[in-house]
Simulated assay, not measured.
Amino acid sequence: MIKHVMWFAMVPALLFATIAAAQQYPMLDSVANRLVQKYQQSSCEQLWQERAAKKGHPKPQGEQNAMEMLKNDPQMRAEFINRVAAPIANKMFECGMIP
């Protein structure tokens, strides 16, 4: 019985933390959603072609700015990685891009 009570107490706290993080970084929410959507909607062939095309090319300025923000804000970086890591890793695994 105590486990059930503790579980019901934890669920609202987790939901609140998720909502608070989304409100804290609205731009991150948008970027993370677009990135996850891109990977989910792209075919493996498209991802392989994009990877090959990027080799040796500099990143666009907007992407460089976003990377700099993530480097400078550990909390934002952690939130971003928490949102995108699993969906992207799953797609890359499906496509044979990671072992």
Rank of each mutant, 00 (worst) to 15 (best):
M1L: 13
M1W: 13
I2H: 11
K3A: 12
H4Q: 11
V5I: 14
V5P: 02
V5C: 07
W7P: 01
A9H: 04
A9I: 15
A9W: 07
M10H: 05
M10G: 07
V11K: 03
V11L: 12
A13R: 06
A13T: 10
A13V: 15
L14R: 05
L14F: 11
L14Y: 06
L14N: 06
L15D: 00
F16C: 09
F16A: 15
A17C: 07
A17L: 09
A17W: 09
T18V: 11
T18Y: 14
I19F: 10
I19V: 15
I19W: 12
A20P: 04
A20Q: 09
A21F: 06
A22D: 12
A22G: 08
Q23F: 11
Q23N: 11
Q24T: 15
Y25P: 04
P26E: 02
M27T: 15
M27C: 08
M27E: 15
M27P: 04
D29P: 04
S30M: 11
S30C: 09
S30E: 15
V31C: 02
V31W: 00
A32I: 02
A32L: 00
R34H: 13
R34E: 15
R34I: 08
L35S: 10
V36M: 03
Q37Y: 10
Q40V: 05
Q40G: 05
Q41N: 12
S42W: 01
S43G: 13
C44R: 04
C44H: 02
E45W: 01
E45M: 07
Q46A: 14
L47Y: 04
L47S: 06
W48C: 07
Q49D: 13
Q49N: 14
E50Q: 15
E50C: 05
E50N: 08
R51N: 13
R51Q: 13
R51L: 12
A52N: 09
A52F: 07
A53R: 08
K54E: 13
K55G: 05
K55D: 06
G56D: 01
P58T: 03
P58F: 03
P58I: 01
K59N: 07
P60F: 03
P60R: 06
P60Y: 07
Q61L: 14
G62C: 01
G62L: 09
E63H: 06
Q64H: 00
Q64D: 05
N65C: 04
N65T: 14
N65F: 14
A66G: 08
A66C: 06
M67K: 11
M69Y: 07
L70E: 02
L70F: 06
K71A: 14
K71Y: 09
K71T: 10
N72W: 02
N72S: 11
D73W: 03
D73V: 04
D73L: 02
D73S: 00
P74D: 04
Q75I: 09
M76S: 02
R77D: 12
R77L: 13
R77E: 15
R77K: 14
R77A: 15
A78L: 14
A78D: 14
F80I: 00
F80C: 05
V84G: 00
V84C: 01
V84N: 03
A85K: 06
A85L: 08
A86S: 12
A86Q: 10
P87V: 00
P87F: 00
I88P: 00
I88T: 01
I88F: 02
N90T: 11
K91R: 07
K91A: 03
M92D: 00
M92T: 02
M92V: 01
E94F: 00
C95L: 03
G96E: 05
G96M: 04
M97N: 04
M97I: 03
I98F: 03
P99V: 05
P99E: 06
